[in-house]
Amino acid sequence: MNPVGNGRGCEGLNRRLLAKTLSEIENRQLIPKRHEGLIIAFTGSPGVGKSCLIDRLIYEWSTTKTIAVLAVDPTSPLSGGALLGDRIRMTVLDEPELGKQVYFRSVATRESSGSVPSIVGDLASHLFSEGFDMVLVETVGAGQSEMRCAALANKIIVVEGPSRGDIIQAEKAGLLELADLVVVNKSDLPGASKVAHEIQSSLNLTDTAPNIVLASAQTGEGIEELAEKILLTKSSVKTNRARIRERILMWHENKLLHRENFDYVIKQISSGELSFEEGLVILSD
């Protein structure tokens, strides 16, 4: 297969084969060789506009870069099913020319607990080996578990919106500190600049505060600046420790999830045949 990166476009790409191979990786039938590349994670609460922003940014970037998007949505823990709804926002895929330069794939969290399953790293590896210049990851965006994207991404873009006004909760603080850049989206709505100021003043207490950009995925205001700033932003040294921490956590979780007796122990505990403590002992040897 031809490499497609470096602005050469996706012409040589066999999308069908690519999609099938990604499924094999997702189903753990195939482990790809490691390929490094630029992974940018977009995280933030549901509804703040992550998908719409990614769509807009692709218009800016895809004239010079080949881009793949991995958009993560939650798997229902009860049914194991998922509704993968981010693709609806991707107007750029409908563009006759630009659309061909972009590969978009919806990913369910499946058994993994963070807002970015570790499998995303493997999927990205394969996309880089196929010549994509960058991989954009949209996270589930749910509270604390959002930090997990730090394990995989080179740059973390935290998306906020107005209306959330005073509720930039303390629990968000950890994530904001990990941010390489903060976008306050929906600048067309009242309250956006107030939120931007609030974040600014809370982050100014730390020494290496990330840039804060106001933008609107709806009107396009600020998008060009945002696209530029994201590419220029260097991921900071201070976040490095947090990244390593998340990587270790992810590695441990994976080990646990892939133990043969994991489901068995859960069943035994829930049916009362094992106490919780006994279950832990079995899982930790």
Binding site: G81, A82, L83, L84, S106
Partner: peptide, 14 residues
């Protein structure tokens, strides 16, 4: 789409 999700499938609605 929702019914298929609840039955354990991964569903993409266009």
């Amino acid at each position: 789409a929702r019914a298929l999700r609840d039955a354990g499938h991964e569903v993409i609605y266009t």
